[in-house]
Design a binder for these strands. Structure first.
Lengths: 208, 208
DNA sequence: CGGCAGTTTGATGTTACTCAATTTAAGTGG
DNA sequence: CCACTTAAATTGAGTAACATCAAACTGCCG
């Protein structure tokens, strides 16, 4: 067996490309090395729910650690590089290394928390609140990976992605974007999100 | 230290009573021994999202295993009995017993899957589909714990609980219940859910 | 019998969806 | 550099789904 923790694959995926399919059995634990991706659940009638946007360093398929079939499908949003660790190696370390166990269990708990908060937002929040919440969650994650000047965050999502993430139509997302821009809260265009009034964004979107 | 896996507390909670609060640090890993309870996230303006209904045998607070603060609040729906295991004991077994690790990690994965599916339902499904989905998920879980005759399932939820679980108002839940009853799909009254047309219920509520 | 919590029903209001047209932005090939 | 094409975003008008408000009804318990 190869050394645990070793990257066994490293490959590019072009923007829009499929990286994993729900219910398939994974070969590796996949990690996003560069670019953006997203997890989603596809319904047979064409609707889909985007569950999480993934940034460099994120694990694409946490369930793969335990050799279970994929819980979600994953697609590349931009051009990405993906690294793959052998599941065997990771599970080996999970069994023997208590620091690794702690890392993985914390990761799992964060996943549960995020999914539950998303459910609360989708169940209870209005269109405006949902969109504000999405922005608010992305801001610190983008900031952790990019140099941010003048509150301008790289933002490669199309309005269709936002719509699928918050359970609205792209048309309605466009209207809300217009509203938020007009009211001087955030302004999204040309792949950049500019946060103008952070306190207001928090008031709208924070989970309290 | 007490023997791991030992029940250290065992206590009743009356219907409607609080069992755990989000963000508090848990003392024990709590297990529901009898009755119904539910996990939810409470918002400061009074709205709340019910995330899961809990039946006997369910762990009320899975995150407690790792000593993290509660991810959700928990309330008793009916009168319940709750058992508490010391977190220390469970974590001890988690570290040393690989079967225990596997059980817990599977449990965690199921939690992530359920929360993600809930998010998909809340984000994408119509009122009717959401309610059908809720019923559909409950049916096998109720059946595993009760003798079912003539497709009649014990169902202690008030319409307010259903509303908070699917993100609708109680008034609208009442209308949809009326519709489903009239169309001969399911009929809910007096604490009993009667499934009349299971295939139709699946067609409406299954996640495909 | 009266009171209370929960459900049902009706009327009306609001939010978000649908459909369709227009504008904008970003290529692409001449 | 400029028509031409195409994908994405915006805007408007009409509609459907769900919320709100309020009243009536039900079953239950004292």
């Amino acid at each position: 067996m190869e050394a645990p923790g070793q990257i066994t694959r490293f490959f590019p995926v072009r923007a829009g490309g499929q990286i994993a399919n729900r219910n398939q059995i994974p070969n590796d634990v996949l990690v996003l090395c560069s670019g953006w991706a997203y997890r989603y659940i596809q319904l047979s009638d064409g609707r889909r729910q985007i569950l999480q946007f993934l940034l460099p360093g994120d694990i694409l398929s946490p369930e793969a650690i335990f050799g279970k079939s994929h819980l979600f499908s994953v697609k590349a949003l931009t051009e990405v590089m993906v690294g793959g660790f052998s599941t065997g190696g990771v599970r080996e370390r999970y069994a023997t290394d208590s620091a690794m166990r702690s890392t993985i269990s914390n990761y799992g708990i964060a996943e549960i928390r995020d999914a539950a908060e998303l459910a609360a937002v989708l169940g209870q929040y209005s269109a405006e609140e949902r969109i504000a919440h999405l922005m608010l969650r992305l801001v610190p994650r983008i900031a952790a990976r990019n140099v941010i000047r003048e509150h301008r965050y790289p933002f490669p999502l199309r309005q269709q992605h936002v719509a699928d993430a918050v359970g609205l139509t792209p048309v309605h997302v466009s209207r809300i974007f217009g509203l938020l821009r007009e009211r001087g809260v955030v302004s999204i265009s040309e792949g950049v999100m500019r946060v103008i009034d952070m306190p207001e964004l928090e008031r709208l979107g924070a989970l309290r």
